[in-house]
Design a protein around this nucleic acid. Sequence first.
RNA 1: AGGGAUGUAGGCUAACCGGAAAACCAUCGGUCUCCAAAAUCGAGAUUCUCGGUUCAAAUCCGAGCGUCCCUG
Length: 338
Amino acid sequence: MSADEGQENSPVESYTEIASEAQVSGQDARAPGVLAIVGPTASGKSALGIEVALRLDGEIINCDSVQVYQGIQIATAKVPLAERQGIPHHLIDFVSPNINYTAGDWAREAAATIAGVQRRGRVPILVGGTGLYLRALRNPFFPSPQTDAELRRRLNKLRERRGAEHLHRLLQRLDPDSAAELYPRDWPRVQRAIEVRLQTGEAMSQQKGGRPEPTESARRLRSMVLNPPRTELYQRINERTEKHFEAGLVEEVRALLAQGVPANSNALGAHGYRRVVEYLNGRRELASAIEQTKLDVRHYAKRQLTWFRREAGAEWFEGFGEDPGLQQSLIAALENTR
RNA sequence: AGGGAUGUAGGCUAACCGGAAAACCAUCGGUCUCCAAAAUCGAGAUUCUCGGUUCAAAUCCGAGCGUCCCUG
């Protein structure tokens, strides 16, 4: 097998042509509208994404809930500009870390970005590990109010004072059906259901029928899941975490806090950042922050795999995204099913 | 080699006078409609081995094996 042949090969061009034609006719069901490269953190998604984009004339759309934030850098594994090989990257590094960006926000912007990429006749490639974001794109949320920061703050306060179970009892009165489906201690979702009920006057359980149809391209989304050997993945996570600390993660966090980024923001709640904040607050030793971060990320990788396992129609690839063999078989899979 | 100690889940530790093998961490699996790098639920033992005492053994007795400490 010659690994270098794919570069200038005509099948690649014809793939692009079909993608463009599909755009024009809007009807060619054989042409995948959008590709998604997903998998656990540290599995090599970004490198694979760039490789695929180079071969298929694609553009990358970030699908990672942390890489959207500006200012947080070291522990996010964003691909540096210099390594993007000219491939445009969208929805990355564009939200202030002071803001809490949501899955709904992302889904709306992603749909618009996908349309823009297709208008240019190129292939949109979603790359990232946030399964909920992807799902929000494929199965759009029912129209629901944006987060009301003030209401959320009050609910948070209430929970801190009276406990998660108290909120659940509140929900039992406001929306019994939703309450019955949720564990009393699962406070983020309990709170969200309360918010929806209070902000709209209607129970969330009543609104579930009103989900909008996904866009045509989201419907044809084709997802490829990376599944590297678990032991090696964990080893890689541990090593990467060490590198982040060596690269000055602590200083980065110190600077962000000094700039006024809230310690409880989403951005500083990300892996790496969260534990360093605890360290800087004197609640943890540095060594403990490092070890706990490794553990957090390993747990996260496992949950990501659990999530993707139930994504219907996903195609699984065993190995890391940097592996040329895997790259080749993935591209072959794309071309064989044209 | 002699003397002493010790052996319970991957790790660390519980289990009263013999009376249903537990917790924590790790690991594995699941749930999840908008803070998701979040939150949450669950699973796992031939108690080193063999034998003995007993209605009943992680627990008591014997032997073997392993580990650690001390002495030479």
